[in-house]
């Protein structure tokens, strides 16, 4: 039996003003992969995620999640934004931020109750942050803030996770903790799509990869397509030769 497609993107084009940021992207992500999106700065990696999630309106193209339009499948999707996208001096606690992950299933007006709190505490425990639950978020380190964001997405209990550079600015301990959680999620049959910067760790962390530089260069299993040829096409330099100089 063929694995179903978790995410399918057709002819996606995004432009801020005149210059296209993403050009005619076709992408099919099978269920249950842990996929890295790699590409140079300005390649449109974050934009791709944001366009799939409807945060940015594309000029053209369609998105489907398990063969249905994204709007109908929102509850299947969780998002971990870049850590730097919010103001961490906001007056709230770690637990409160994680609780926000339950707001989507609650819908309008209804307040989170004991059930939601329990779920949030469990998620905090999973990312090893339970003892920080009442900590004001500005007093968390960068790695801890990233874990809180991850916990907020875990609470959503989604089928597909989109993550925008979850390893950015975190120390080795946090990086290992996060990648272990991601691998655990994949084992549980979830699909993970991760914007990633560190090419060295791609073969070790991920089983699927998409090369992106405004256009889609290649997508597929890491074992088959993570090679010099695609790296050169994406980054414009012979990557392996350049770093071995």
């Amino acid at each position: 039996m063929k694995t179903p497609l978790a995410v399918q993107v057709d002819d996606l084009t995004v432009a801020y003003n005149y210059k296209p940021v993403l050009w005619d992207i076709d992408l099919a992500v099978p269920e249950g992969v842990l996929m890295a999106i790699v590409g140079p700065n300005g390649a449109g990696k974050s934009t791709l995620i944001k366009a799939i999630l409807g945060i940015i309106k594309p000029i053209a193209g369609s998105i489907s999640i398990y063969d249905k339009p994204y709007e109908e499948q929102r509850k299947l999707v969780a998002y971990v934004p870049q850590k730097g996208s919010v103001d961490w001096d906001f007056p709230t606690t770690a637990l409160d931020v994680v609780m926000m992950g339950t707001y989507g299933s609650l819908g309008w007006i209804k307040r989170p109750g004991q059930k939601e709190k329990k779920a949030a505490l469990e998620a905090l425990e999973k990312v090893g942050m339970l003892s920080f639950k009442n900590r004001q978020i500005s007093q968390l380190s960068g790695g801890q803030q990233q874990r809180v964001f991850l916990a907020r997405a875990l609470v959503q209990n989604a089928a597909i996770y989109f993550m925008d550079e979850p390893f950015q600015g975190v120390d080795a301990t946090t990086e290992i903790a996060i990648i272990n959680i991601l691998k655990e999620l994949r084992k549980a049959g979830k699909t993970l799509i991760v914007v990633h910067h560190d090419l060295q760790t791609v073969p070790e962390y991920f089983d699927w990869v998409t090369f992106l530089n405004v256009k889609k260069i290649a997508t597929g299993p890491v074992k088959e397509i993570f090679n010099d040829d695609n790296l050169t096409k994406t980054y414009g330099i012979n990557y392996k030769v350049a770093i071995n100089k």
Binding site: L53, G54, R74, V97, M100
Partner: peptide, 22 residues
């Protein structure tokens, strides 16, 4: 009081709020 939760999450993280369907 009615929209407390919605106000709070929008203030903190507008993009994320959008992905939750608000």
């Amino acid at each position: 009081l009615l929209f407390w939760k919605e106000f709070k999450i929008l203030l903190f993280d507008a993009d994320y709020t959008k992905t939750l369907g608000f």
